[in-house]
Each structure stands twice: as structure tokens, then as C-alpha cells.
């Protein structure tokens, strides 16, 4: 299979989805189940986008609050900076 670019992947998935959606909404496929759920089908793209948006916000906020704060690394570095400054001064570095 030819390697698609990411843009092409997005376009093909979106086209496939909207082809199905349009065939249902446009009445090209007739079935009682489709007609009973027409309102849901009609607004399904909006539902999907909204649900995904909620998922995205939840995930991003969760990751913000659990972002690893490297306190021990900071303290270690502070100590090493002092050590480095002392050693470099002894080696003749002038700042």
C-alpha cells in the first residue's frame, strides 16, 4: 500500500464518514431504523465532535494536573550549581 501523508489519512477518513452520513441523511438508503433515528443521524457529526471535545479537555486537564514537577531534580541541580561555581572559580574562571 502506498504510504499516505497524515493529511491524506485525515481527508480519507473524513470523506468515508461523510459519504456514509450523506447517504443516510440524503435518503439514498431507506430503512425504518434509519428513519426512526434520523434526528440522531443528522446531528451525529456535532455529537461526535462535542464528545471528542469533552474527552480532549478532560485528558488535557488531567495531564496538566499530573504534569511531573521535578522538585528533586531541581534541588540536585541547585547543589551542583554551587559546587560548579566553586570549582570553576578555583580553576580561574572569571565571570
Amino acid at each position: 500500500m502506498i504510504k499516505m501523508t497524515k493529511l491524506l489519512e485525515w481527508i480519507s477518513v473524513a470523506s468515508a464518514f461523510f459519504a456514509v452520513w450523506f447517504s443516510l441523511v440524503g435518503g439514498y438508503i431507506k430503512h425504518p431504523v434509519i428513519e426512526e433515528n434520523m434526528n440522531f443521524i443528522l446531528f451525529s457529526p456535532i455529537f461526535i465532535v462535542t464528545l471528542f471535545g469533552l474527552y480532549a479537555v478532560t485528558v488535557v486537564l488531567y495531564r496538566v494536573f499530573t504534569f511531573n514537577n521535578c522538585e528533586p531534580a531541581f534541588l540536585e541541580l541547585q547543589k551542583q550549581i554551587q559546587e560548579a561555581n566553586k570549582d570553576l572559580l578555583a580553576k580561574g574562571l572569571k565571570l
Binding site: K6, W10, V60, V64, F67, N69, C70, F74
Partner: peptide
């Protein structure tokens, strides 16, 4: 074990948000 130090909420949010979008799209 990766992480950051001394970042405020806004900076973390932008970082995580931008990372989420790039991960999703690419």
C-alpha cells in the same frame, strides 16, 4: 520520569494542549 520544574498552570496548559493536538493530528 520526564517533567518540568517551576511552570505555572498556563504554561502547562499550553504545553499539554499543543502536545495533544500534534499527537492527534500527526
Amino acid at each position: 520520569g520526564g517533567g518540568v520544574y517551576g511552570w505555572d498552570f498556563k504554561r502547562k496548559l499550553i504545553s499539554r494542549g499543543a502536545n495533544f493536538i500534534t499527537q492527534l493530528l500527526l
